[in-house]
């Protein structure tokens, strides 16, 4: 079994209040859905509609429960309603069922332009640099903030290490986050062959994290061609690189299938001064 896993993007946030939020609905959401309680009320925040971020929806067990209530939030588009855009996937010939046939109660909401509340959490989204309209999310409960930017190429066309913060994609979203979940798909050696693909190389992900003052960093969106052993070495290199930037290497972690992190406001800062 793969230690890091092979599912596509899906993250569950559990709050002190007992409520939860799901971030993206890649294939990882299927297993997550099996563990949800009866009569679940689920909010899913979609960063964008690339297939690896929505393909788990059709296999999400609560979608097939009549007692489930699901609200799906995603980026607005002048082209079509969120429901209609997702229905391109959950419809024939790609799917045996249509959205309107799902037994659950499902609603689709455009993400608002200003912060909004979902239960005990405050949510803010912003457009970030990726291929196609893509959001990042900043989710705050009490004094604790998690920022989720799984697909992001902030270095494209700019000098990330030196440019003023006002010109950094995702800066406001991620600023001083207690946990930053960020794209780190490529090694520095691989990135030059993937410029403009919408993802980050290791040094760029770490530089972004240091510029925004993230207290803790979870490297996310691993390249599917990277084996577990490769990712182990990748993690080691990322920690060394972070230490060279003046950060605490223990606070750079790798996203892992089923991995759990407890997030709280940190007393010390892992980030390097911008």
């Amino acid at each position: 079994m793969n230690r890091y896993g092979g599912n596509t993007s899906s993250v569950q946030l559990l709050f002190d209040s007992g409520e939860q939020l799901l971030l993206d609905s890649g294939t990882g959401i299927r297993t997550l859905g099996l563990s949800l309680a009866a009569s679940p009320h689920v909010n899913i925040l979609l960063t964008h509609l690339h297939l690896d971020h929505i393909q788990g929806l059709m296999f999400f067990p609560p979608c097939f429960r009549a007692d489930a209530e699901i609200t799906i939030w995603g980026p607005a588009s002048p082209e079509a309603l969120l429901e209609d855009r997702i229905a391109r996937y959950i419809s024939a010939p790609l799917s045996p069922v249509e959205v309107r046939e799902l037994p659950c109660s499902v609603s689709f909401r455009d993400t608002p332009p200003s912060e909004w509340r979902i239960g005990s959490a405050t949510v803010v989204c912003e457009a970030v640099n990726h291929r196609g309209p893509t959001l990042g999310f900043r989710v705050t409960e009490g004094d604790t903030t998690v920022c989720y930017i799984p697909d992001h190429e902030p270095v494209l066309g700019t000098e990330l290490a030196s440019v003023d913060p006002e010109w950094i994609s995702g800066f406001d979203l991620a600023r001083d986050a207690d946990l930053l979940i960020h794209d780190c798909q490529y090694t520095d050696e691989e990135y030059p062959d993937h410029v403009g693909w919408g993802h980050s190389g290791m040094s760029d992900a770490l530089t972004f994290a240091s510029r925004v003052g993230a207290q803790r960093l979870l490297l996310f969106h691993h390249d599917p061609l990277h084996s577990d052993d490769f990712l182990d070495r990748f993690h080691g290199a990322a920690r060394e690189r972070w230490a060279s930037l003046g950060g605490d290497p223990a606070l750079v972690e790798m996203a892992m299938e089923g991995g759990e992190l407890e997030v709280s406001p940190a007393a010390t800062r892992a980030g390097v001064p911008a």
Binding site: A127, T158, D178
Partner: peptide, 24 residues
């Protein structure tokens, strides 16, 4: 940390425009 502080960042479309102009 809390929610977003006063805005420090330009809208993404301006950031991308600047990146483009830098290359011209």
């Amino acid at each position: 940390m809390g929610t977003m502080a006063a805005r420090a960042q330009k809208p993404l479309e301006l950031i991308l425009a600047r990146n483009l102009l830098t290359s011209l």
